[in-house]
Every structure is written in C-alpha cells, then in structure tokens.
Simulated assay, not measured.
Amino acid sequence: MANASRQVVWEFFGTELKRRRENAGLTQVELGGRVFVSGGYIGQFEQAIRKPQLDVAQRIDDVLQTDGIFERLCRKLIDDPRYADYFAHVVELERLATRICEFAPTVVPGLLQTKAYARAVTVAANPFRTDAYVDEIVAARLERSLILDDAARPEYWVALHENVLRIPVGGPQAMAAQLDRVAGLVRERSVVVTVLPSAAGAHAAMTGMLQLMDFEDAPPVAYTETSFSGTLVDDPAVVKRAQRAYDLLRVATLSPEASLALIDSAAEDFRRCASTT
C-alpha cells in the first residue's frame, strides 16, 4: 500500500473513530480511560497524527461496540509484507519522532544501512528466499532512511557497539562503504554516533537492540528487538527504565570525535583487506 493511500485510510480511521465516539456520548478522556490510553492519545488517533497499536484498536471496538471495524482497519494498515508484524508500528512512529536514540549491539541500524549492507543482512536472515523478496525488503529499509534527508528530520543519536565495526557484513568492500556512509552522515551533522568499546565490558542494554523515540505532542516510546521478535513499549515506567539504561550506556561510549576516528580506522582496515583479496 503506497504511503499516500495509507495516510488516507488512517485519516478515515480517525474520522470514523471520532464519529463513533461522539455517537456513544464519550469524551476523548472517557474513551481513553476505558481503553487504557490517555485522552490526548485518542485525540491524536482521531487526527491521524499517531497510529494505535492493534490491541488498542481491539479495545476501542469492544468499548464502542463497532463489530471489529477498527481492528480490521488497523490490520490492513500494518499488514505490510516488507516488515515483520511487530515492526510495522515502529516504522510509522519513526516518521513522527522528533528525536530517535538507538543502541545497536551487532549490526548497523537500518536507518544508516547502505544497499549492499542491507542486502547482506537480509540474505543472511533469509537464506531460502527469492531475490525478489530480498529486493523488496532492502527497498523498504532504504525507504525508511529517507527521513534523514528530510528538512524536518529527527535528531538521531546512535550508540554502536565496537562489534558492529568489526564484523565484515557483505565482505570487506561492502563494509568499508558502509562505515564510510556512517562517517559521512556524522560529518554532515545528520546523526551523532558514538562507539561503545569492547573493553567497556558489561553495560545496561546487553540483551539486544534498543530504540527510544520522542514526539512533539505525545509521550515517548521504547522499542527493543532480538533476532526473532520485537516489543514496542509505551508504559511510562518501563520507558523511563529504558531511557536510564540508554543514558548509562552512552556515558560509557567514546567521545563523538574518538568514535569517528575509530569508524574511519575500521573502514580503512576493510579497504586494505579488500585490496589484497
């Protein structure tokens, strides 16, 4: 589904939600209380500013007795074969975020990946899939990264574990190009990247990738991911813990200047390796 048509359906979702809520005689605050979100969230759903998670849509159907219309709309909108079910909402939220903070323990974050790197990661995870499938996944990943080209792009803070700089994803030439891209974005001031050195040892977010997103008129969310699943969290207490874990991790990283020097050095190492093979 094209982005423009998806937005039209989200706007219909919001308009229909407002109509059904008002017909039920409920305020935004009252409906929010019954489906366990704030009244402000309901207002943002109605304006198509923020998209509800599937379980929230299901609770709205239950409260408003709408015979599953909001669940069906939500499933239609998040049913994008290019993304895992648990990741579709994250893609929507990235487009709305004013700030994104991310920790990557093993691979370069999707928003920073080159085509060759993204393809190598996708093939490694899907060794029996067709080239057409791989191309579709890679195209979607590159499409996500377009938010960094937007004039209204979010602040993007990335902490990379040193492992990310050392694993030759796609081979030395592809890896050198990938690290050059990261360094280039840093020099363009499109992103702030720091590196957590291996010598730092244990840290607060060892269990997997962590992403934090802030918004103009909505509470922050956290997203965590392992190899086969991801969890989007908006519980304020849990998000606060995730933010603290990220803060503790970031103070253990190298300075931005030292991190850039290490990225450049790793890229040069891969270039020398490529030239000798």
Rank of each mutant, 00 (worst) to 15 (best):
C273Y: 00
Q173T: 11
Y117I: 03
I49F: 03
A24P: 05
P81G: 11
Q178M: 14
R95P: 00
D80S: 09
W157L: 14
R72L: 09
S198E: 09
A204R: 07
T253I: 07
Q58G: 02
L146G: 02
P219K: 05
T15K: 13
Q7A: 07
L196F: 06
L254I: 05
V91Y: 05
R244D: 04
A252T: 08
G40S: 09
Q58T: 07
L165S: 11
V239K: 06
D80H: 08
Y83P: 04
S198Q: 06
V164Q: 05
S255F: 12
W157A: 04
V37D: 03
T130K: 11
L93K: 02
Q178G: 12
R19K: 15
A245S: 15
F215T: 03
A97T: 03
T231Y: 10
A104L: 01
L93S: 02
A2P: 11
R144V: 08
L17D: 03
A132T: 08
S198K: 08
G201K: 11
Y41I: 11
M209G: 06
A245W: 03
E94N: 04
L148F: 05
D269H: 15
L249K: 01
A205M: 07
A204V: 08
A261R: 13
R271L: 11
F12S: 08
V123L: 07
N163P: 00
A140M: 00
L185W: 03
A120D: 08
S190I: 12
A204F: 12
I60K: 06
V123K: 13
R181Q: 14
L77F: 07
E94D: 08
L160Q: 04
E94W: 09
L196E: 00
D247K: 14
I100Q: 01
Y223Q: 05
G201I: 09
V29I: 13
S38G: 07
A124T: 12
Y83Q: 08
G230P: 12
C74G: 09
L262K: 00
V37N: 00
V134H: 03
K240S: 14
L165R: 11
D247N: 14
R250V: 15
L17F: 14
Q28G: 15
T98K: 05
R144H: 08
T224W: 07
D79P: 01
L254D: 02
D269S: 15
R272L: 15
A258T: 12
V138C: 10
Q28Y: 05
L146M: 10
V108Y: 07
R271D: 01
R181W: 09
G171C: 10
A218S: 04
P105I: 06
E71I: 01
P197G: 09
M1F: 10
